[in-house]
Amino acid sequence: MVEYQGTRLNIRYCEQSPVGADPTTWQPPSWQEALAHIPLAKRPRITAQMAARREHLAKTGLLRSPDHWNTEGDLPNGKHFYAIKADKIRAYGWFSLRDKGVFYISHFAFKKGQKLARADVNRVVANWRQIEEQ
């Protein structure tokens, strides 16, 4: 299972590695797609930012800075989903009620404009239903 374990939270990815792939090296396709929008020279810095912010979230259970974290759209249960921010890359996810202490990352996306894309909302909600309503 592709998961990062912290002291307060485990960060679990909805995109899981295919059978036979090493889950510790496998990269979610949405991450690769989002990163492809970033100029080559900036990719290491932005990857490091995402690694640092997900580590802090896993260690403390929250991110406070609006430059690191944002409350995004609504989920079907009335709760919100959130985004970990690193430059223009977002990791959309939610705090699971089914799996206590787990923050699920639905997918990564490159954010082009100010507005949250409908496709991203739909993808988060579909993943949320698959995991939380099982």
């Binding site: 998961e3 510790t24 580590e55």
Partner: peptide
């Protein structure tokens, strides 16, 4: 269990240095 970001961090000392700075 770790993820691809941990793997990327451990891939080179340059990556580890960047993550330490950002952390």
């Amino acid at each position: 269990m770790s993820d691809f970001l941990t793997h990327w961090t451990n891939e080179s000392s340059e990556n580890a240095k960047l993550v330490a700075q950002e952390l």
